[in-house]
């Protein structure tokens, strides 16, 4: 096993592409080191991207936020503007692991780990976040939902990696929220989760809504809820429709963390609760 600490994206991409064996990108390392410990992966090369220019920075861009791939999640919560604009994304990222893990883990890593239960991913999808991918052929921008393709699998090509994620600008009266279900209060992987992103018009009516569900399918599931929510003030009837739509869309499995029945029911509960939080935030 070798460890490399490139200083430019091009160098990182070159190293990844040139490795004949197994190469792994490392940002916070909180997933990678667990895999190393368990013997699940034995990479020949680890490429640490924390020292690339801008990797550890949150920058303002076109009214939105460009989050470097090595920004630890704890730093997201320390950026007041980001919290104000994307409270759901920040709370989702802040739920991953312990305070100690928060000091290392990144949303780019969470996305590339491609677990259907990754907490930040539903929130990023609902937010319409865009990943910037660097590779042998230069840069490309990819909507985040196109990155994971199945458990542990991504659409990234050989030599490609994410350098940053862009959260778009926010109009007035817009907010998001994320809720997950875990058996304890902390330290668990989501049994199921829901992210809701709402934009209201001047009268408090929902103008646009995006909902993404976690841990109820092989990848994060975006559910079209326009029919349920748009044009409503999120009354009980709208919330009921949302919960039903979320439960209906869910295609979970039974495993050590939950059953099909449990996940199907609870994901609807979470969607309803998250929508109410997002609405209250947006109407504020």
């Amino acid at each position: 096993m070798r460890y490399a600490r490139p200083e430019t994206p091009a160098e990182a991409s070159r190293l990844l592409a040139a490795e004949p064996g197994l190469a792994r990108v490392m940002a916070g390392g909180t997933d990678l080191l667990v895999q190393l410990k368990s013997g699940l992966v034995e990479p020949d090369l680890i490429v640490d991207i924390k020292h690339l220019p801008g990797a550890a920075m949150i920058t303002r861009e076109a009214g939105g936020f460009r989050i470097g791939a090595a920004v630890p999640n704890q730093a997201l919560g320390e950026d007041r503007d980001l919290v104000a604009a994307w409270p759901g994304v920040v709370e989702a990222a802040s739920l991953i692991g312990s305070t100690q893990v928060q000091g290392r883990a990144t949303i780019a890593g969470n996305l590339c780990n491609a677990s259907p239960a990754g907490d930040s991913v539903p929130a990023l999808v609902a937010a319409g976040a865009v990943a910037r991918v660097t590779g042998p052929n230069g840069e490309r921008d990819v909507p985040v939902q196109q990155i994971p393709t199945g458990p542990g699998k991504t659409s990234l090509a050989r030599g490609e990696f994410i350098t940053s994620i862009l959260l778009p600008a926010r109009p007035a009266r817009a907010a998001d929220a994320y809720l997950r279900f875990i058996p304890r209060t902390e330290m668990d992987i989501a049994v199921c989760s829901a992210a809701v992103n709402l934009e209201l018009d001047g009268k408090g009516v929902v103008a646009r809504a995006r909902v993404a569900l976690g841990a109820v399918a092989a990848t994060v599931l975006e559910v079209d809820v326009s029919a349920a929510l748009v044009g409503t003030r999120l009354d009980d009837a709208a919330l009921d429709k949302l919960a039903k739509a979320a439960s209906a869309a869910a295609k979970p499995i039974s495993d050590k963390r939950g059953t099909v029945e449990f996940r199907t029911h609870v994901v609807g509960v979470l969607a309803r609760r998250a929508a109410r939080i997002a609405y209250e935030r947006a109407a504020r």
């Binding site: 460890y3 600490r5 490392m26 390392g29 909180t30 080191l33 667990v34 410990k37 680890i46 640490d48 924390k50 630890p72 704890q74 312990s98 305070t99 100690q100 893990v101 000091g103 290392r104």
Partner: peptide, 18 residues
């Protein structure tokens, strides 16, 4: 748990080379 550049981390999830 140790501190690494001002944040607390699990030192089991950090490589020595880092």
């Amino acid at each position: 748990t140790v501190t690494l550049n001002g944040r607390i981390v699990c030192s089991c999830l950090v490589l020595g080379v880092e």
